[in-house]
Design a protein around this nucleic acid. Structure first.
Length: 496
RNA sequence: GGCGCAUUCGUCUAGUGGUUAGGACGCAAGGUUCUCAACCUUGAAACAGGGGUUCAAUUCCCCUAUGCGCUACCA
């Protein structure tokens, strides 16, 4: 049985790239009847926080990915990692490095790597560590004397490692390109590459599906598997998600757009965002694009994964395009087509958050509420729209859009008289339903010799505060006689 | 610097040794309409560049360019 894991490090929010990695792991597990596991890689104790862990787990839950087994915390396995390193030391597959630990300031490591590499040029020798061939008894003696040491894997100078990546195909790397990597820090803490290998072994992971940024390091991990006398799992690396222009998508440069929680907070339907994410770097090879979780599980396979990085397209300077157009479109598509009983709970949450929810909507006004949602959801893009654009349906306390006032009221000052007059006609209607309201509106416009649009557009601004919205006849019907009449007579919009 | 990976419309992508290079989002035009969406019709829009191989290359090979990744006693 296949076993895969999603292994986030809790050093911040859940990045959308990580969310997609989790998605692909989940889909792979479900589509092959395997297990989806979660392992929190909290070994960097300086940067890991509980808050981050919680936020990541919340994000996974929101997307619908519950782990099949208990969540593993990597920090709890440090003892085993250390034991593995010591075993390799014992077997001579690793050695003690007594070089004093240098100061590593995190910020400029990349620059220093490049700098050092430039100096070495092509002449570099990754096996020039003076302790690599230190006499064993001498090494033991110094260790016993309490001298601190790091443990490094003894990588052979000849040959290469190779593996078949499910996405990128055959990967080979000469050992001469791989340094004797550190397994254990001089303070006794295991390092990432060792920890992942040990944990994946321990958890019985059969397929490692992760970001392409790990592709080159996979060779190091394979070396560790070999040294431990174990078979490496199957690897599948995923293309990355980039920012417009092909740049790295980072919190520092792109802010909250990279955080999954942003999408939840800005009114995304989880299924819609999940659907969008699935299409970034993976293709079902069909023209079907709208897919719920079951459909994704049905069609998912590693073969459909792309090799080139995908650009997450958005415009930081344009509020209307704060995130990818297609994501927004897909969210709208979900909002207007998803089953009402799936949508209602989401709208309820949104209205509750904005203090617009009334318990009656779940009870004696359920029918009315559903009718309203059915009508207004047609033109909404996010769940936020229900409380913002749709506010007038749930509250008397709503604003009048200045642009709408200008466009439909200011240009027709006569409406200030006409709208209350029209209110009188509505008030006297025997049957306050669609057709009679429509007839009344037409009759009124005939009397005043104006186009229907003039009346209804003006009414929309006064009654809903908006220039756009559902058919005004339907809106009157939904709001009911009293509220319609009252708002038509109101001078608020005229005085603002 | 070294090593690795990638490159089809603006973006996400399909695809093939011979195709009118397909779809989606977005964009534009038209229809519909009380507004705006939705919907329908139509349109503009791509094989990074250069060499090969081949009867034929977007597809196979090489080089260049560009981008990304890794190169840490970070994960």
């Amino acid at each position: 049985m296949n076993r895969v894991r999603f292994a986030p490090s809790p050093t911040g929010y859940l990045h959308i790239g990580s969310a997609r990695t989790a998605l692909f792991n989940y889909l792979f597990a479900r589509s092959t009847k395997g297990k989806f596991l979660v392992r929190v890689e909290d070994t960097d104790k300086d940067r890991s926080t509980e808050e981050s862990t919680r936020s990541i787990l919340d994000g996974l839950k929101w997307l619908g990915f519950e782990p099949d087994e208990e969540i593993i915390f990597q920090s709890g396995n440090a003892g085993q990692h250390r034991a593995a390193a010591l075993r390799l030391l014992e077997e001579g597959k690793a050695y003690r490095d007594f070089t004093p630990k240098g100061d590593v300031s995190d910020s400029d490591v990349k620059a220093r790597i490049a700098e050092r590499a430039r100096e070495q040029g092509a002449e570099k020798d990754l096996r020039d560590n003076p302790y690599r061939d230190l006499d064993r008894s001498e090494s033991d003696r110094r260790a016993d004397a309490g001298e601190p040491f790091a443990v490094r894997l003894r990588v052979s100078e000849e040959g290469n490692t190779a593996f078949e990546d499910s996405v990128y195909g055959l990967q080979e790397r000469d050992h001469s390109e791989i340094e004797d990597l550190v397994l254990l820090r001089s303070d006794g803490h295991p390092l990432y590459n060792l920890a992942v290998v040990c944990d994946d072994l321990e958890m019985g992971i059969t397929h490692v599906i992760r970001g392409q940024d790990h592709l080159t390091n996979t060779h190091k991990q394979i070396l560790i598997y070999k040294a431990l006398g174990e078979e490496p799992p199957q690897f599948a690396h995923l293309p990355l998600i980039l920012a417009p222009g092909g740049k790295k998508l980072s919190k520092r440069h792109h802010g909250e757009i990279v955080s999954l929680t942003t999408y939840r907070d800005k009114g995304f339907v989880a299924g819609a965002f999940r659907n969008f994410l699935a299409l970034l770097g993976w293709s079902p090879k069909s023209e079907q694009e709208i897919m719920d979780l079951a459909a994704l599980v049905d069609t998912f396979s590693l073969e459909g994964i792309n090799r080139s990085n995908a650009v997450f397209n958005f415009d930081a300077n344009n509020p209307r395009r704060w995130t990818d157009d297609k994501a927004l479109w897909m969210n709208a598509e979900y909002i207007r087509t998803m089953p009402l009983d799936k949508l209602i709970p989401l709208v309820r949450e949104e209205l509750r958050g904005e203090k617009l929810w009334r318990e009656e909507y779940d009870d004696e006004e359920k029918g009315w509420f559903e009718a309203v949602i059915t009508v207004i959801r047609e033109r909404y893009f996010t769940l936020k729209d229900f409380s913002e654009q749709g506010r007038a349906f749930f509250s008397e306390d709503f604003d009048h859009d200045p642009a709408a006032v200008k466009k439909h009221l200011a240009k027709k000052p006569e409406l200030e008289q006409w709208l209350p007059e029209f209110a009188d006609r509505l008030e006297s209607l025997e049957d306050f339903s669609h057709d009679p309201i429509y007839e009344a509106a037409n009759k009124f416009c005939e009397d005043k010799e104006i186009k229907l649009g003039v009346l209804l557009n003006g009414a929309r601004v006064v009654v809903t505060g908006q220039a756009v919205g559902p058919s005004m006849i339907t809106a009157f019907e939904l709001l009911g006689r009293d509220r319609s009449v009252m708002r038509l007579r109101s001078k608020i919009a005229w005085n603002e």
